[in-house]
Each structure stands twice: as structure tokens, then as C-alpha cells.
């Protein structure tokens, strides 16, 4: 025969636990008032969440030092794209040493899945995924971006310089 012990008055008296819980909430509240930078929540329309510099967002076409486009229209990114969102038209260059250059380079952002395969496939560091995110828009606004938007949109501040220059690339044998 087992005897069931009733709980003491101390443990069945709920005021102590209520006071403990309220002490925790007030401690957190006062801490958050004095440490506003450490708070994880964001009041969305007033504050904007800032993504890091390595964030893979909308595409960038890099430029050479003289300002022309780095892309050589080799079509590797368009072949590797799983969603077929890149369309390139190549044209003949005036310089006989240069084989071809893209006369139009369009990315349909409605189809893009932001996988980064174009960036991986590119042998000359011409396409990159930039840190800013693709903007949503109303029906009818332009979602197909051309060369002008990809190289010289105002966020890029006059073009994103490619790592590899033409001479360095020939010297290293890429």
C-alpha cells in the first residue's frame, strides 16, 4: 500500500511562479530597451533587412578596364541554365583578334531560379550574382533585362570590374 503525498502549500501556491515568470519577462524587456541593435525582429516597411555581401541575387555582367563587356558569347551559361532564361545573340567584332562579342544578352528574371550555374559555368568571370535582390513588380513592368541594365544599372556605380584582364588570361593560359 502506497501513500500519495499531497503537494505542500509552497508548491501549490502559484504566486511565486508568477512572480518568477514576470521577473524574466521584465528583465528581457528592460534589456531590449537598452540594447536595441541586438533585437532580431524587423519592423518591415520602416526598416529594411540588410543581406550580406556574399548574397547571390540579381545578375551582373562584368566589364574590362576599358569599359567594354567581358563576355565573349561562348554560350556556356545559356547551355547550362536549367530554366532556359538566358538568350544571347553573338556578333562579329571589328578587331580580327577577337572572335565574337554579345550584341544582345537578355535574362528573363521571371524564369530564373537563381541557382548560380551560369556563374559557375563562365570561364572568363563575365557573369556574377550580385548582392542586391531582384525587384518584384506589377504586371507589365520589365522583367527581361538587357545589357544596359546588367552592366550599368545605377546600383553598380558605373560597372563591375572583372578579375581577369585579357593579357593576364593569355599569360596564365586559360
Amino acid at each position: 500500500m502506497s501513500i500519495v503525498k499531497r503537494p505542500d502549500i509552497k508548491s501549490s501556491w502559484y504566486v511565486t511562479s508568477i512572480v518568477k515568470g514576470m521577473a524574466l519577462t521584465f528583465r528581457n524587456m528592460i534589456y531590449n530597451i537598452f540594447h536595441k541593435d541586438e533585437m532580431p525582429t524587423v519592423n518591415y516597411p520602416e526598416e529594411k533587412y540588410e543581406y550580406g555581401p556574399r548574397f547571390k541575387g540579381s545578375h551582373i555582367l562584368t566589364v574590362k578596364k576599358d569599359g567594354s563587356i567581358r563576355c565573349t558569347a561562348c554560350m556556356l551559361c545559356a547551355t547550362n541554365c536549367p530554366a532556359d532564361c538566358i538568350s544571347i545573340t553573338a556578333a562579329e567584332h571589328d578587331d580580327p583578334e577577337v572572335e565574337k562579342f554579345p550584341i544582345s544578352y537578355e535574362i528573363d528574371t521571371l524564369r530564373c531560379v537563381y541557382c548560380g550555374f551560369c556563374e559557375e559555368a563562365c570561364p572568363v568571370d563575365a557573369v556574377r550574382m550580385g548582392p542586391e535582390w531582384q525587384q518584384p513588380g506589377l504586371n507589365g513592368s520589365s522583367f527581361v533585362h538587357d545589357i544596359q541594365h546588367l552592366t550599368r544599372r545605377p546600383n553598380l556605380k558605373g560597372g563591375y570590374l572583372s578579375i581577369l584582364d585579357e593579357e593576364e588570361r593569355h599569360n596564365s593560359g586559360i
Binding site: Q134, P136, G137, L138, N139, F143
Partner: peptide, 8 residues
């Protein structure tokens, strides 16, 4: 569709 939100 009135509004498009791209991204994946």
C-alpha cells in the same frame, strides 16, 4: 496575374 514576385 497582377503582381509578380520573382525568386526561388
Amino acid at each position: 496575374v497582377h503582381y509578380f514576385v520573382p525568386g526561388c
